[in-house]
Amino acid sequence: MTTTTADVQIPLPDRAFEIWDEVTQAWTRIPGRYNVEIGHSIADLRIAVPLQLPEQD
């Protein structure tokens, strides 16, 4: 069996890291550590890439 690897870039929109804030009635990005998980389905995740979102200015 041959294994092939490749570097890829997948752009993620800002909204992927935002939640709706009921108090401010606006989308808010929460800084912190996240895992971006990739797989065929939620039951078959193959990769987890850590991502650190800094505080917004």
Rank of each mutant, 00 (worst) to 15 (best):
L53M: 03
D14K: 13
H40R: 11
S41Q: 05
D21V: 03
W20Q: 10
I30F: 05
F17G: 01
E55A: 09
T2S: 12
D7N: 09
D44G: 03
N35S: 10
D44W: 05
V8T: 14
R29V: 05
R33V: 11
N35T: 13
Q25V: 06
V8G: 07
I19N: 09
M1C: 08
A6T: 09
P11E: 01
V49I: 08
A26S: 15
Q9M: 13
T28A: 12
L12G: 00
D44L: 09
I38E: 02
T24Q: 14
I19P: 00
E55C: 02
E18H: 05
D44C: 04
T2V: 11
W27M: 14
F17M: 02
W27N: 13
S41D: 09
S41A: 14
T4I: 11
W27E: 12
V8F: 08
I38Q: 06
T2W: 12
E37Y: 09
I47H: 10
P54K: 10
V49A: 14
Q9Y: 08
T28N: 06
I42C: 04
T4D: 14
H40K: 09
I38H: 03
I19E: 12
Y34G: 00
I10W: 01
I19M: 08
T24D: 15
V8K: 09
A6H: 08
P31K: 06
L51C: 13
A48V: 01
R15C: 00
A16L: 02
R46Y: 07
L45H: 04
M1T: 11
T28F: 05
Q52I: 02
E18C: 06
R29D: 00
A6L: 05
T4C: 06
E55M: 07
T2C: 08
L12C: 00
F17W: 01
V36T: 13
Q56V: 04
L51D: 08
T2G: 08
L53N: 08
W20V: 06
T2I: 10
R33F: 14
T3M: 09
D14G: 05
I19G: 03
Q56Y: 03
T3V: 11
A16C: 06
P50L: 02
V36N: 05
I19L: 04
V36A: 03
T28W: 09
L12F: 04
L51K: 06
P54G: 07
G39V: 03
R33E: 15
F17R: 03
R46T: 12
Q9G: 10
E22Q: 09
T24V: 12
W20R: 04
Q25H: 08
I30E: 15
R15V: 02
P31T: 07
R15E: 15
M1K: 11
T2M: 10
M1Y: 11
E55Q: 11
P54D: 12
Q52C: 02
Q9W: 12
T28R: 13
R15A: 15
I42A: 13
D57W: 04
G39F: 09
I19S: 10
Q25I: 02
A26R: 14
V23W: 07
D44Y: 08
R29M: 15
G32S: 07
T24F: 05
I42T: 11
I30Q: 14
L51V: 14
D21Q: 02
T5R: 06
